[in-house]
Design a protein around this nucleic acid. Structure first.
Lengths: 134, 134
DNA sequence: CAGAATCCGATGTGATACTG
DNA sequence: CAGTATCACATCGGATTCTG
């Protein structure tokens, strides 16, 4: 019982898990972290338009290195969000696409992106005010 | 013009920004990163229940260090998502609460959390399959 | 109580070079 | 084309100690 701010468990008390549980134990946090990955959202949003090749993604996602694109795609693939199809041709060709699971993630990410877009002015103002020594 | 995977700009072609634009330039990415911050979502979800003191948050968010709690709160405060109220008493007391802006963010985060919860089995399975050498 | 400061290992990220 | 490997560096994040 807190003398000041008593609080009881509620729906919002979502299992965001403890300290050590970062991967297998806590899908919630790992998903959150995946989305927060510097490039993951860009990849997902890009693939939401349809399948794309490695080089296409690299070109479209401005500033990403092939190292990071590879790593990001691997993580998303491991989570079953992205599907990787290799065509054993020469030169090699690999297509990436959202899985059905990945597609269900798109609206939520879009919502987050939309939120950011809608409130970017307010956020920018808040930061300016904060940085101006608050 | 891609010979293989032509793609045109669409609504999903959201400005996720380029390489250097990480802070002021790209609110979208910075918001995504904020949400993906290891502890930010936990803090927001916790504050969604109502204002809380530093020590209360620290106790409720299992495993967070005061270093990270402080840092997380500062970032959220800077973005205008969290409000910090200091009561100049002895011992000092500080209350944190979501701002109106912060409250508008809650449903979206909940949606993301909900998505993760709903699909955690599928994700876990996907990871297991992937790790089992796919 | 609420933090600031410091130390330090772990992890993330980019640039570059190399390969099937 | 689609990676992998390596090096270098920045940031993250935890533990600990100190203070108003």
């Amino acid at each position: 019982m807190e003398d000041s701010t008593p609080r009881e468990p509620s729906i919002t008390d979502v299992p965001l898990c403890g300290p050590q549980a970062d991967d297998a134990e806590c899908p919630v946090r790992s998903i959150l972290e995946r989305v927060g990955d510097k490039w993951a959202a860009s990849v997902i949003v890009n693939l939401a338009q349809g399948p794309a090749r490695f080089s296409t993604l690299k070109r479209q996602i401005d500033g990403i290195s092939q190292r990071m694109l590879t790593a990001t795609l691997r993580k998303l693939e491991r989570d079953g969000v992205v599907d990787r199809t290799v065509y054993p041709s020469i030169p090699p060709r690999v297509d990436y696409a959202l899985t059905p699971l990945g597609q269900t993630l798109v609206p939520t990410i879009q919502a987050l992106v939309q939120w950011a877009l809608s409130n970017q002015a307010e956020i920018k103002a808040a930061r300016a005010e904060y940085d101006a020594k608050e």
